[in-house]
Design a protein around this nucleic acid. Sequence first.
RNA 1: CGGAGUGUAGCGCAGUCUGGUAGCGCACCUGGUUUGGGACCAGGGGGUCGAAGGUUCGAGUCCUUUCACUCCGACCA
Length: 567
Amino acid sequence: MKFTQLLIPTLKEVPNDATLASHIYLLRGGFIQGVGSGLYNFLPLGKIVLDNVRNIVKEELDAVGAQEVSLGFVTPASFWIDSGRFEKYGKELLRFKDRKDNEFVLGPTHEEMMVNLVKQTVKSYKQLPLNLYQINLKFRDEIRPRFGLMRGREFLMKDGYSFHVNEDDMKREFALMEETYKRIFTRLGLEFRVVDADSGAIGGSGSKEFMVLANSGEDTIVVCKDCEYGANIEAATRKPMIIESEAPEADFAKFHTPNIKSIDELSDFFKVDPFYIMKTVAMRALYDEGRSEIVLFVLRGSDTLQETKACNAVNANELIEVSEEELSKAGLYPGYMGPIEVPNNIRVVADDALQNAVQMICGANAENYHFVGASSDKISVTYHDLIAVQEGDKCICCGGELTYTKGIEVGHIFQLGIRYSEPLKAEFLNEHGKTQPFVMGTYGIGVSRLLAAIIEQHHDDKGCKWTKESSPFDIEIIVSNAKDEFQSQFADKIYYSLKTQGIKVLLDDRKERFGFKMKDYELIGIPFAIVVGQKLENGMVELVYRDGRPSVEIALKDIENVVRELI
RNA sequence: CGGAGUGUAGCGCAGUCUGGUAGCGCACCUGGUUUGGGACCAGGGGGUCGAAGGUUCGAGUCCUUUCACUCCGACCA
């Protein structure tokens, strides 16, 4: 394409609402245009990149037997009522009515639609397995859209769903999707990590996230320095801690501890490691239909509570903080709460690390008193993994040191099982002629988010640095002085020549000064450029690398070979 | 939803405190000079000052209401 024929409105100044590199450069480079909170138009360049990413996703999925479909963006509310998500999904679900007062939903994800599609068309085990996907718009009325394409309300997502006769076959497909996703992100030139994840609102058992490593990422992930282990902080586990300092020894007793409330104060007062103190965190758990209760989460004083894990442990929709008034109304004393002699049958959940714990100190649920010599046989609770893994903890796989890093979630795959097929009565006849629900998996990729992720990982202070397969063009030709007939004609000649060879070329034929065009080239971020300039008279052009390598001069006769080499 | 902030030309901003002819830079149009790192000169076009109401002889500026957007916290591809 010729620059003069393309709409590429590059911006010299930073739009004031953009803070993140990807947001700034995508706007400045003329890839996208903001139209409202979390809503963007894709301009010609942005659309080309989006299609590149989309095509890679499609190619890889088709290659392993998945089939593309396209589901309606507007979905009847009845589907959502049937699955129970009409209420549960909350305000993110954009609902509206048509002229006849029928209720509809803009699809935020398409489990219901896809299950319905398959339910109507697949009746026999002979038609399985089946993996269907689409690459389509989604709309989620996010509480707080931000960071440009990173978290829009309307976004492009690839969502895939697989249907199987049993768990084993679903797990086989799940593993296949993991491998396929790795190929997709590798082709896009991304440095990423596959991590264990929490399943969240979608539900299901095993789930894995694909994280693009970038400091601006919104997720904290735990990785092992010595092995492949990686997990979202929400799902990360560790090797049980071993403490060197001795456990205190005391018979079970109530101990006067006036004004000694925090773990630190207790640790000082009793001269024991926080490891031997029980920390009790009170949270209010919210359930469906407005029900809620106070729950006490108990863990070792050396640990901190991971809220997502805690939320899952009690099957709540959400955990919120409890005010001091609510606590005292419930008969609880901040600083003196504990799992023993709990008032009013308040629910208590303890961390796995407290199973069989002895010689612990914990709040006595009485003001100014703690118990000493407490052991887990004194308490009747359920045990769950509740702790947030800390940097420096030991890897559960190999014992290596765990550290934190930041990631952008670009893919998430789930083993759903019969979570949707059963309530929606999506069933088939198995080989024994018996009715059984489909065993499902579901697989998502944030396609438009990938554009942001690529730039987050590949940019400098001048602009974008698109990776080979994502770049809108393979190479750019810059005419140094477009009014110089000799330069223009020559640039034109190699432009057409490369183009006929199937190379995607952008010719900057604008009548602007050299510096102006170089700045735009760097901002847009195509991997290579050929500068046709003054040296042309000596039979030379210049090859510029966007990745920072020094440019080199090449002879005219070598241009095509060099270019073919590069791409 | 809680906290903070911003709405003035396509973009970035000043003007608002202290009411008195709506400005600057970039971009855009015309002509000319320039042409290897976002050129220069001259001329020009473009605004219901987010919206509604009020105070006033007079409101971008003061008052009330409202809308939108952005940033910091709980959700997610």
